[in-house]
Deep mutational scan, measured.
Amino acid sequence: EKTLKIVADSEEEAEALAKELAEKYNLEVTIERNPEEEGKYVITIKIKP
């Protein structure tokens, strides 16, 4: 299993990107607040072998 993390500037941007990735590529995608940067969100994508 591989994990890729993407940082987005807004929750709306994160949700839109996560939804597109999940639907288009059938990936497991989660969104959470970035504890290191206020106002940023981390999109985590898990790629199963």
Rank of each mutant, 00 (worst) to 15 (best):
residue 45 I to H: 00
residue 9 D to H: 15
residue 46 K to L: 14
residue 36 E to V: 11
residue 10 S to Q: 01
residue 35 P to I: 10
residue 47 I to F: 14
residue 23 E to A: 08
residue 23 E to G: 04
residue 10 S to D: 04
residue 42 V to P: 01
residue 33 R to D: 03
residue 18 A to W: 04
residue 42 V to G: 01
residue 24 K to H: 08
residue 19 K to V: 06
residue 21 L to M: 07
residue 31 I to Q: 01
residue 13 E to C: 12
residue 22 A to E: 10
residue 38 E to I: 04
residue 6 I to P: 00
residue 36 E to L: 13
residue 23 E to T: 07
residue 40 K to F: 04
residue 3 T to N: 08
residue 2 K to F: 02
residue 21 L to C: 04
residue 25 Y to D: 04
residue 41 Y to F: 14
residue 2 K to A: 14
residue 47 I to D: 04
residue 8 A to C: 15
residue 37 E to D: 13
residue 23 E to D: 11
residue 22 A to S: 13
residue 37 E to L: 14
residue 12 E to A: 11
residue 17 L to S: 01
residue 24 K to W: 06
residue 14 A to N: 00
residue 36 E to K: 12
residue 17 L to N: 01
residue 43 I to D: 00
residue 17 L to M: 12
residue 32 E to K: 06
residue 27 L to M: 14
residue 45 I to G: 04
residue 1 E to P: 08
residue 11 E to N: 05
residue 26 N to M: 06
residue 48 K to M: 12
residue 36 E to C: 10
residue 40 K to G: 12
residue 6 I to A: 02
residue 38 E to M: 04
residue 13 E to H: 08
residue 29 V to R: 00
residue 3 T to A: 07
residue 12 E to H: 07
residue 40 K to Q: 11
residue 34 N to L: 15
residue 39 G to N: 08
residue 40 K to R: 09
residue 43 I to P: 00
residue 14 A to C: 03
residue 42 V to K: 02
residue 36 E to Q: 12
residue 44 T to F: 05
residue 16 A to K: 13
residue 32 E to W: 03
residue 3 T to V: 13
residue 28 E to C: 10
residue 28 E to K: 05
residue 7 V to E: 13
residue 9 D to A: 08
residue 17 L to R: 05
residue 19 K to S: 07
residue 26 N to S: 07
residue 39 G to C: 08
residue 30 T to R: 07
residue 21 L to G: 00
residue 14 A to K: 01
residue 45 I to F: 02
residue 18 A to R: 09
residue 24 K to N: 07
residue 7 V to N: 12
residue 4 L to I: 15
residue 45 I to C: 05
residue 30 T to I: 09
residue 15 E to V: 15
residue 42 V to C: 03
residue 10 S to P: 00
residue 38 E to Q: 06
residue 5 K to Q: 13
residue 14 A to W: 02
residue 16 A to P: 00
residue 1 E to A: 08
residue 42 V to H: 04
residue 48 K to E: 08
residue 46 K to V: 13
residue 4 L to E: 04
residue 32 E to L: 06
residue 38 E to P: 13
residue 38 E to A: 05
residue 10 S to T: 11
residue 23 E to N: 09
residue 8 A to Y: 03
residue 48 K to D: 10
residue 12 E to L: 07
residue 16 A to T: 09
residue 22 A to N: 09
residue 37 E to A: 13
residue 10 S to Y: 02
residue 24 K to D: 03
residue 42 V to D: 05
residue 19 K to Y: 06
residue 6 I to S: 01
residue 45 I to R: 00
residue 37 E to K: 09
residue 32 E to A: 11
residue 15 E to G: 04
residue 26 N to Q: 13
residue 40 K to M: 04
residue 23 E to I: 07
residue 1 E to T: 07
residue 28 E to L: 09
residue 49 P to T: 14
residue 11 E to D: 03
residue 2 K to L: 12
residue 37 E to W: 14
residue 33 R to L: 10
residue 6 I to V: 08
residue 4 L to N: 05
residue 29 V to L: 04
residue 40 K to E: 06
residue 45 I to K: 00
residue 41 Y to Q: 02
residue 24 K to S: 04
residue 12 E to C: 13
residue 11 E to K: 14
residue 16 A to R: 14
residue 19 K to C: 05
residue 1 E to S: 07
residue 16 A to S: 09
residue 37 E to M: 14
residue 2 K to E: 12
residue 26 N to G: 14
residue 41 Y to V: 06
residue 38 E to Y: 08
residue 13 E to V: 08
residue 28 E to S: 08
residue 36 E to W: 12
residue 9 D to I: 04
residue 30 T to D: 03
residue 37 E to V: 11
residue 34 N to V: 12
residue 47 I to C: 11
residue 7 V to S: 12
residue 1 E to M: 06
residue 26 N to Y: 08
residue 6 I to H: 03
residue 21 L to K: 00
residue 26 N to K: 08
residue 8 A to N: 01
residue 17 L to C: 05
residue 20 E to K: 14
residue 2 K to M: 08
residue 39 G to I: 02
residue 1 E to F: 01
residue 29 V to D: 00
residue 40 K to V: 05
residue 15 E to I: 15
residue 30 T to G: 03
residue 1 E to V: 08
residue 39 G to R: 03
residue 30 T to E: 06
residue 47 I to M: 12
residue 27 L to T: 15
residue 8 A to K: 03
residue 20 E to W: 15
residue 6 I to W: 15
residue 48 K to N: 13
residue 47 I to V: 13
residue 20 E to P: 01
residue 46 K to Q: 12
residue 31 I to A: 01
residue 7 V to Y: 15
residue 20 E to A: 14
residue 37 E to C: 12
residue 6 I to M: 05
residue 31 I to R: 01
residue 30 T to Q: 08
residue 16 A to D: 04
residue 48 K to W: 14
residue 42 V to L: 11
residue 21 L to Y: 11
residue 9 D to T: 08
residue 32 E to H: 09
residue 28 E to V: 12
residue 35 P to H: 09
residue 45 I to P: 01
residue 40 K to N: 05
residue 23 E to Y: 09
residue 47 I to T: 09
residue 8 A to E: 01
residue 32 E to P: 00
residue 24 K to A: 09
residue 24 K to C: 12
residue 10 S to G: 03
residue 14 A to P: 00
residue 22 A to K: 14
residue 2 K to W: 01
residue 34 N to D: 15
residue 7 V to I: 14
residue 29 V to Q: 00
residue 29 V to K: 00
residue 40 K to D: 02
residue 49 P to F: 11
residue 11 E to Y: 15
residue 18 A to I: 06
residue 29 V to S: 03
residue 25 Y to E: 03
residue 3 T to E: 09
residue 39 G to P: 06
residue 14 A to L: 02
residue 31 I to K: 01
residue 43 I to E: 00
residue 3 T to Q: 08
residue 41 Y to H: 04
residue 19 K to Q: 08
residue 3 T to C: 13
